[in-house]
Amino acid sequence: MPADGLVSQMRRGALEYCVLALIREPPRYAFELIEALGRTGMLTTEGTLYPLLSRLRRDGLVKTDWRESTDGPPRRYYELTTEGRRALTAFKNEWTSFRGAVDGILQEGKKP
C-alpha cells in the first residue's frame, strides 16, 4: 500500500499530542499510556514511547513526579505543564481544520 509510509509518519507526528491529550487529566504513568495508545493502534513498539516522553519533559511540555504504588514499583507520573496545555490546544485547532479540509475534499471527490 503506497500510503503506508505517510500513515506511519502521520501517526508518528500525532503521537506526542495524543500523549499530551491522555495526561490532560489526571496525570498518568507510562505503562498506562502504553496500554491506552496500544488499544487504539497508535503505538506498536512500546519502548519508543520512552524517548518521546523524555523529550516532552525536556521541552517543558510535561512534568513528572514519582509516586509509590501499592501493587508494584514506584511509578513516574506525567502531567501537563501550562506550556504543554498550550501546545495541545494549538495542535487541536490545527488538527480540526486540517481534518475538516481533507474530509471536505475527500467527500467532494466522491460526487459524480
Partner: peptide, 30 residues
Amino acid sequence: DMRSHIAEARVHDLEETDASILNILDRLGE
C-alpha cells in the same frame, strides 16, 4: 525507563513464564 516498564509489566503479568517475559520484551521492541 526500560527497567521500570519491565517491573510494571511483570506486576500485571499474572501467569509469569519465560514466554510471557519474552512477550513483554518483544512488545518493548528491538
